[in-house]
């Protein structure tokens, strides 16, 4: 399998402790990789490292097969875009001016693609409105457009649904799926909202205390959750079913709706109260 990003025993230590502790992960090409973990598990630290915003204490990572210490790494970085925590935007500029600035930073000779990018993220009507007057959802979408400048084939989104209203979440989900399906862009998405992630992710990585607990695909998750028989029954019949099962000594578990399966799997791996 071809990987866009791999990490090998990647560690980042601060004075307060270890943010990443020998993390190994593999993001396959073309995947939507859901990166799941509790607050402080090390998700943003990993994203900062792969974006070059901070330096690893030990271990290594590769982007498109190139070691992070390679002098040519900057060429690989040009193939990726990222929105780390909050979108990095100049608040006193319009959406178009921000994109033009990003084009300048990338050294692109023409501003031709800007209009298309604005249409892609649904911000073509914003005109002369400054970014400081944008809603959080608009900023998030502009952040993605900024990350899309230069046509990268790997996008890293750190908590992209943070602060978005339900409509904004739906729009963002559709945008991610569209980019993945139509342009073949690989995504690495860290998110707290497991239900939301479960709707789009093709692969998952679960991180806890700076370590990778498990990596698995959406198919693996499906198989794992289907190894037990799922019975749907009216609540009124439940008592009778429980009685029969108990008489025959068969263990059972009462599960909530099926959208919860990633959440349950996460809790079974991590333990605790499941605050991802």
């Amino acid at each position: 399998m071809e990987y866009v990003l791999t990490t090998d025993a990647l560690s980042k230590h601060y004075k307060k402790g270890k943010a990443l502790d020998g993390l190994c992960m593999h993001v396959p090409k073309g995947a939507i990789y859901g990166f799941v973990g509790k607050n402080g598990a090390g998700k943003t630290t990993l994203i900062r490292l792969i974006c070059g915003l901070s330096h690893p204490t030990s271990g290594s990572f590769t982007l498109y097969g190139m070691e992070h210490t390679d002098s040519e790494m900057k060429k690989m970085r040009k193939r990726m875009g990222a929105v780390v925590e909050t979108p990095a935007l100049s608040s006193d500029m319009t959406a178009e001016e921000n994109l033009r600035q990003q084009y300048r930073i990338l050294g692109l000779s023409s501003f031709d693609g800007i209009k298309d990018l604005l249409v892609l993220v649904g911000l073509e009507q914003t005109g002369k409105k400054k970014v400081r007057a944008f809603s959080l959802g608009m900023k998030q979408r502009l952040g993605i457009a900024m990350a899309m400048a230069g046509e990268p084939d790997f996008l890293v989104l750190d908590e992209p649904t943070n602060g978005l209203d339900p409509q904004g979440i739906i729009e963002l989900r559709e945008l991610i799926l569209k980019l993945n399906h139509e342009k073949g862009i690989t995504f690495l998405i860290s998110s707290h909202i497991l239900d939301e992630l479960a709707r789009i992710a093709t692969h998952y990585g679960i991180i806890d205390q700076g370590k990778m607990v498990k990596e698995f695909s959406a198919d693996d998750l499906e198989k794992e959750c289907n190894s037990k028989l799922h019975i749907e029954a009216d609540v009124s019949d439940a008592e009778e079913i429980f009685r029969i099962l108990e008489e025959r000594g068969i263990s059972y578990e009462i599960l909530p709706g099926k959208d919860k399966k990633l959440e349950e799997y996460f809790i079974s791996l991590i333990g605790g109260d499941g605050h991802a």
Binding site: C51, K75, V84, A88, L89, S90, Q101, I105, L106
Partner: peptide, 14 residues
Amino acid sequence: SDGTVRNKIVTGNR
């Protein structure tokens, strides 16, 4: 404060 320095680093500038 705007975070725009991150855009320069992420896009591979030294």
